[in-house]
Structures are given as C-alpha cells and as structure tokens.
Design a protein around this nucleic acid. Structure first.
Length: 559
RNA sequence: UCCCAGGUAGCUCAGUCGGUAGAGCUGGUGGCUGUUAACCACCCUGUCGGGGGUUCGAGUCCCUCCCUGGGAGCCA
C-alpha cells in the first residue's frame, strides 16, 4: 500500500482511464491529453498524442516527437516492439476512420445507403446458401447489428466461414433495409477484417444462456453477455446521474480518504493497511508495533467518508462523496460486498426532514434516469430477470415515500397480527423480516423509518427532545431492504461529548470532530446510499455480485 | 459467523440398494435454409470440488477443508 507511484505509473493510470472512456473506433488506440512538471528542469509540459494501449492497462507510446521532460514517454515507446510497429502502423496513423459508427447510433439514425464501418464482437454466425449472417455487438447497446457476408468476399472461405462467437471484427459495408423480420436494418458487408479469433472449442461463452454463478467465474468475459453488458451500461448511467443530481443542486464533490485512521463507529470491521512484512512485523510488548509502520500508526481502508464529509459541509455548505468503501465483515449475503461504492451527501443547515427530502429526490432521480436513458436494457431485465421490474420502478416515482417514526412502525407491526420469528418490541432493532413486512406487505412501496431509539444507533446522531430517540432515518425498498441510512448529526458539543464518552470511544481520536462543534457549529445532516443496492433495485438483479464488475466478498477477490 | 441445500462432460442437470458414469445444450462434421436461441443427421468430451477414512469395491457411506445457493446476523 506504500505510495511509491512514479511518473510512469501516474501516466499509466491516466492512460488506462482515458482508454476506458475513449470513443475511439479502435479500442486499443486512444488520444490522451497530459501535462506534468518535469522533475529535471521544472518546465511545464503538456500536449496530446495517440497511444497504443495494451489490454487497457499498460500504455505503449507511439514513437514520435518528444519534449523535454518526457523521459517516461521515451521509456515506454522503447517497449513497442518492431513487430508491434509493423502490425499496427496503418491503424495508428488513421485511428478514427470517418465512416466508423457505434451500433447504438447506427440503429437510431439508420443512415440507409451509406457506407459505414463497425467494430465489435461476433455473437453468432448462421450460414445460408450463398452467404452468412453475422450478428455483431459492440457494447454500445443491447442490440446486435446483423451483417450479410456474401460468399464472394475474398476471405469468405478462409476467415468469415470460420468466425464464431467471441471473435473481434471490423465490418465495412452499406447499411440497408432488412427484407426479413427481426431487425429493421442490416449491414451488407464489403469488407470483413478479423482482429482476433476466439476458438469455439475453448471460448467459455456459448450461444445459450448461462447461470450468473458460472459467469462470475469468468468475470473477464461476462460483460460480453447481454445481461452483464446491460448492467454495466446501467451502472455507468446511474453513476453519471448521481453527479448530475448534485451538480444541479449546487453540491460540491469531495474526495475523502480511502486510507483512514477514523472508525465511523457502528460501520463494521475494517481492513488494516500496512507496509509491514507480515511474516515478521515489529512487535512491542507482544503486540504489533504500528508506530513503526508506514504512517506511524495503525491505518485502515475507509468504512465511510461521513466524518470527513462533515468537515467540508461545515465549510462549503452542501457536499457529497462517491467512492469505494470497505467492510471486513464476514457477510455472505446477496446484498453485501467487502468493497462497494457509497454515495454520502452531507448538508449544513439541514435537519432530518431536509435530509429525507434529498434522499427521496436522489432515489427518484436515479430511477427516472434509468427509465429514460436505459429503457432497452431495463426491458431486458423486465423480460428475463424480474417480470415486475418496470412496474416497481414506476411505482417508486408515482408516490411520496411513506415516512414513519420508529415508534409507529412498531405499532403497525404489532397491529398487523403477523407472526414474526423475532419479537417486535420498542427498543429492539427492526429485523430484516420486519423491514420487509413494512415495505413489501403493509405499504408495498418505499418506507422511511425515522427517530430510532438512541441505544441502537451511532454516537453522532442527534438526540431528540424526548431524550430516548435520535434523528435517524432508514429508507427501506421492497426486495432490497435498507438502501439508505442517514441522520441529522449531533451539533451540540456537550451532548456529543457525553455520547462519545458513554460509547467508550477514545476522545483523542475524535478531537477534530468535537472541534467542529466548538467552532461555528451548525445543524447538519446526511446519509449513505449503497450504490450497488440502487443498481440492484433498478436492474432487478438478485445478487449484488452481478452489479459490480469485480465483486469482492469473503473468500473471493479474483481478477 | 450460524442454519439448510448443493458441488458429476465446456454449460444445465440425472445417476436407484455401494459394483469405476448418462441426457439435453454447446462444440465438430455433413445436409438444408433470408436466417435470427435456426433446423435435421452423426460424432467427440469426465481428476464425479480437494484431502483422508470404511469396504473386495465409493459419484454413492463417514470425517474434514474449500466453494456456491437460500435464510439469519452485520450493514449500505
């Protein structure tokens, strides 16, 4: 975990990120802007250039002009082998053919009669008497583009007739109306170029349905399936929608630390971050001596950015975080990950009601964006994953969320007469079965439970005037359970101090947190939204491991 | 971490009373066809999750570990 990131690795990070988002027609070539301060002469260098990016991770630079201070470029360029140069030069010089299209926009615009080029992966090939049908998917949308490849094409026998599921190809031809049912348009191929073969004997993805469990074992190939590709697009759209929501409302995006020394009490077990040789860590009095560790003290991966977000809320007003979060809990469920992404808004001069307003608006905004921007993908989920999906999403938008104090929730559960496995009693935490009964059976829509007993909630939540509850809220979604947890924060110094003390937390570690209440304290509130849980809700995927590209769970951290 | 159910061909699964394994799909070959999860015929494929034990003999019974699914706890 030691931060020894050198110049070249910095560039690598930027390059792979840019490649990931590149709209370039050639997936391994991308244009990248860069700038840095030269370590030798302090000169500022900047520019942009085409890079060949291998496997999206290690950048190799095109040989080309240099500026002072670009040592890393030369080093990387030297790694481009002669073979690489011979294989790629034509494409590298003309990285974006003017006629290249993404399938999504082709199907939308349907430029009939025009010559177009698409890049993508073969989903299936079917042979007719004098030609073959190819179905090409380029990831831009769920739909494939049907290609007609006549047997008269020069490489028909040698290549096209041998294409199988998974092969990467480029097809140039004319877009035409399709005479048969099933698709509006098709591409009459003039040229089919094979970028990469996929041996049908060993390529794991077959022309049939696979279980999600199996696909998880091939996480490097599963985004090439309809369902997981759709999840990836929805996740991206939702991610962007989070930022749009807060930007429209004047929130600032704050990057809170991933390596942290603060434990957000109640947020679970933490992963230790160390640079020690774990076979021989320095010890003192029989215990590991973290004062000799990289940071001079014990550090962990963050379980929440909330405490740091409060600092910035009490300076900038309204802020939010959106980043990776880590919990070392041994949770084996379809709703938990050891590494997940959390959205944590924090608003100054805001009470619990305002907090709920923002959370409700955010959730509705995300559902709305998915419905309008990902309708085709959502229809797939509605058809194959969860028949009631679209209706449930529209139901979220249709009504205000039910707001229910904990005490009333207890009364409603008791009055229901339903036989629960766990007792329903004021002062006891709501069990999953209770939460589900509230949101799925009694109300059949999102429910916000507020004002929980203070004994079962975290130290930082604001005490209500009744002396026995705190201004906390959980938003419960049908099928998901708790999707949001939040509260108004305790802004009164004396009250917070008392709560910290009775919670047995080391005051020294929270001095800065107490300081926020000593200097210009103000009412403030916030919440945490588990990003994967909203992706789960929107897609209807049963297991949270399907809505993050590379799930980390107990006993599993592959890829 | 606890309770329950599973792990058998590339995938999804069957496998009786303990006698060393089958089906469908995928893939391959051939045929047919503006096809579209194409269709028809034929063919190939196994460390039965790992380790240990009982037995003449274990996919099958026992122990143990790992993994997966469902539920619970923890939470987002």
């Amino acid at each position: 975990m030691v931060a020894t990131m050198g110049r070249s690795s910095t560039l690598a990070a930027r390059t792979s990120r840019a490649a990931f988002f590149a709209t370039s027609s050639w997936p391994w070539i991308t244009r990248i802007r860069f700038s840095w301060i030269s370590t030798t002469n302090r000169a500022h260098a900047f520019g942009s250039r085409w890079y060949r990016v291998s496997s999206f991770t290690s950048p190799l630079l095109e040989a080309g002009r240099h500026r002072p201070g670009k040592k890393c470029c030369q080093t990387l360029a030297s790694k481009l082998t002669v073979e690489d140069r011979q294989r790629q030069p034509a494409i590298a010089r003309h990285p974006i053919p003017m006629t290249t299209h993404r399938i999504a926009s082709l199907l939308r615009a349907q430029p009939l009669g025009e010559s177009v080029t698409v890049n993508g992966w073969v989903r299936t090939r079917r042979d007719a008497k004098t030609f073959s049908f190819l179905e090409i998917n380029d990831g831009s949308c769920l739909k494939n583009l049907q290609v007609i490849a006549e047997a008269s094409l020069p490489n028909y026998e040698a290549e096209i007739a041998r294409l199988a599921t998974g092969c990467a190809v480029r097809v140039t031809g004319e877009l035409a109306l399709s005479p048969a049912k099933g698709q509006a348009v098709e591409l009459k191929a003039r040229e089919v170029t094979v970028y990469g073969w996929a041996d049908p004997e060993s390529y794991p993805l077959q022309k049939k349905r696979h279980s999600f469990e199996f696909l998880r074992t091939i996480s490097h190939l599963r985004p090439r399936t309809n369902a997981l590709g759709a999840v990836a697009r929805v996740r991206s759209v939702l991610s962007q929608a989070v930022h749009d929501f807060f930007k429209e409302r004047g929130f600032f995006y704050i990057h809170t630390p991933i390596i942290t020394t603060s434990d957000c009490e109640g947020a679970g077990e933490m992963f230790t971050v160390t640079s020690f040789d774990l076979d021989q860590p320095p010890k003192s009095h029989g215990k590991v001596d973290f004062s000799q560790d990289f940071f001079g003290r014990r550090t962990s991966l963050t379980v929440s950015g909330q405490l740091e977000a409060e600092i910035y809320a009490l300076a900038l007003g309204n802020v939010y975080t959106f980043g990776p979060t880590f919990r070392a809990e041994n949770s084996n469920t379809s709703r938990h990950l050891a590494e997940f992404w959390m959205i944590e808004p924090e608003m100054a001069f805001c009470d619990l009601a305002g907090d709920i307003d923002v959370a409700e608006a955010l959730l509705k905004h995300l559902v709305q964006r998915a419905l309008t921007e990902c309708r085709e993908d959502l229809d797939l989920f509605g058809q194959f994953i969860d028949q009631g999906l679209i209706g449930r999403l529209e139901n979220v938008l249709a009504n205000p969320f039910i707001r229910l104090p904990y005490s009333e929730a207890i009364e409603r559960l008791k009055a229901s007469g339903h036989d629960f496995e766990f007792p329903v009693e004021w002062g006891l935490d709501l069990q999953s079965e209770h939460e589900r009964y509230l949101t799925e059976t009694i109300f059949a829509q999102p429910v916000v439970v507020t004002d929980y007993p203070k004994a079962i909630k975290a130290f930082y939540m604001r005490q209500n005037d009744d002396g026995r509850t705190v201004a906390a809220m959980d938003i419960l979604f049908p099928g998901i359970g708790e999707i949001v947890g939040g509260s108004q924060r305790e802004e009164r110094y004396e009250v917070l101090l008392a709560r910290l003390t009775e919670s047995g937390l080391p005051l020294a570690d929270y001095q800065w947190y107490l300081d926020l209440r000593r200097f210009g304290s103000a009412p403030h509130a916030g919440f945490g939204l588990g990003f994967e849980r909203i992706v789960q809700f929107v897609t209807g995927m049963a297991n949270i491991r399907e809505v993050i590209p590379f799930p980390r769970t107990p006993g599993s951290a592959g890829f």
